[in-house]
Design a protein around this nucleic acid. Structure first.
Lengths: 151, 151
DNA sequence: CTTGACCTTCCCATTGTGGTAAGCCTGATG
DNA sequence: CATCAGGCTTACCACAATGGGAAGGTCAAG
């Protein structure tokens, strides 16, 4: 079940591409090894190439893709959205309109969530301001929570 | 294993308290039966009383507690926070300072999350504005995602 | 050859909600 | 009384993303 090379370098084409382990890839990309495997498992990443010992290995291009994913996560895109973005990124004859639509849809989602949370924040802050917080049991916060939606 | 009453009413004390099934409780409180069972399972609610046929039943007070929980969820409190709030609510000699602390802590969490999402939103919107979306492959959104965090 | 640091897979936990299936119970109708 | 629809029970599975850990294989250096 072995006997072949243990090394990661594949020089059969005389190119000098650099390869690395998943740990190194994680360090270079900022995506944890855990998540790299996860992304592969759910199909966001193509299955990684493997050494004879079944270790995943990654090229520079793979690292760049991981960085791409990391950046997209930082903007709050979901896995599905990122899968789509990566697909577009890797497609040379893509339409930037598709990308922009994806981005603007996500802007709207963010706006929606921000609006919801601002509603919560202002309602809750308003309640808290009405509560003296002086240690007595009377509490307009609890009273309001209890009275809301009463028949 | 039976032979006793199938009905929910428990008139042994001559009080006229009203009881209802979990479905009715869900309808009255706005919390789904699914979630009522879940809240009970994770200890946020005391185990419901059961009929002889093992059906959960709920009193008016229980319904009020469910409404309280529903309101607190609407303000974005987590399960743990709500468990604490319910505990305070049910305690007559509570201190409103504790409640206010809980509320203000949650306001801070909301502020934090709102800030994060606003960062994402403005960054992403800025990118999208730079993308013409005219159908060509060139796309500053993808370019930026790809270039961010480069060595 | 041993040791430590890696890698592999598999399972579990989180948070909050929903779905589904198998089986029992209830109330209403024929 | 028999039957049927619809409610209830439990016990799973699923999602979003992420982390933790165990059990075992592998690599590199000493």
């Amino acid at each position: 079940m072995h006997g072949s090379t243990h090394t990661i370098r594949q020089n059969h084409q005389s190119d000098s591409e650099q390869f690395c382990n998943i740990g190194e890839a994680a360090r270079l990309s900022g995506v944890s090894s855990k998540m790299i495997r996860h992304y592969e498992a759910i199909g966001m990443l193509a299955p990684a190439r493997r050494t004879a010992a079944n270790y995943r290995y990654y090229s520079d291009a793979d690292i760049n893709q991981l960085r791409f994913i990391k950046s997209a996560r930082g903007l709050g895109f979901s896995i599905k959205q990122i899968t789509a973005l990566v697909g577009l990124w890797l497609t040379s004859d893509r339409s930037n309109a598709e990308v922009k639509d994806l981005a603007m849809a996500h802007v709207c989602e963010l706006d929606e969530r921000i609006r919801e949370m601002q509603h919560m924040r202002s309602a809750l802050h308003g309640l808290a301001m009405r509560c003296s917080g002086d240690g007595r049991p009377e509490c307009p916060i609890l009273d309001t929570l209890a009275d809301q939606g009463r028949s």
